[in-house]
């Protein structure tokens, strides 16, 4: 019984199976890793095994064979899906702030840190507080 099911599961759809997928060079995966798989919940086109991701890898491979550059390939997908498809947010427009914000945050933290390495006076209110507490019974 199981084997019948098994056959039904894999060998009947073979009618619809096309030829084998194309060979993919490391370059294809390098580019696909920076592109988002549209149907997935947060996987890149290199990782996902969904149909769209497989097709995206194939498109990348074909475009590389046509001599297209990485920039042109990414532009091809941005043209269709918008900048959402780029995992590396471009350093312009609304995503520029993705790069600026962490830098600003780190600088602010560093400034706070710098204060520790400078000799400083004890704040006046603390001294007053200490005196007040000394006087308490």
């Amino acid at each position: 019984m199981r084997w019948v099911l098994f056959l039904a599961l894999f060998f009947l759809p073979a009618l619809g199976q096309e030829g084998p997928p194309p060979d993919l060079s490391p370059e294809v995966f390098r580019i696909a890793r920076e592109l988002r798989c549209p149907v997935c919940q947060g996987e890149s086109a290199a990782e996902s095994n969904s149909g769209v991701a497989v097709e995206m890898r194939r498109i990348i491979a074909e475009m590389l064979q046509e001599g297209k550059t990485e920039e042109e390939i990414k532009a091809f997908f941005v043209d269709r899906y918008g900048e959402w498809i780029l995992y590396n947010p471009p350093r312009r427009g609304v995503t520029l702030w993705a790069w600026v914000l962490p830098a600003v945050a780190l600088i602010l933290l560093a400034l706070g840190l710098f204060a520790y390495f400078r000799p400083k006076k004890v704040p006046k209110e603390l001294l007053e507080e200490a005196e007040r507490r000394l006087k308490e019974p």
Binding site: R33, S44, G82, W84, I85, L86, Y87, N88, P89, P102
Partner: peptide
């Protein structure tokens, strides 16, 4: 707008 921030961003920082 919809944007993505993924592995390349985090790796670089």
């Amino acid at each position: 707008a919809k944007v993505s921030v993924g592995a390349p961003f985090f790796n670089q920082l």
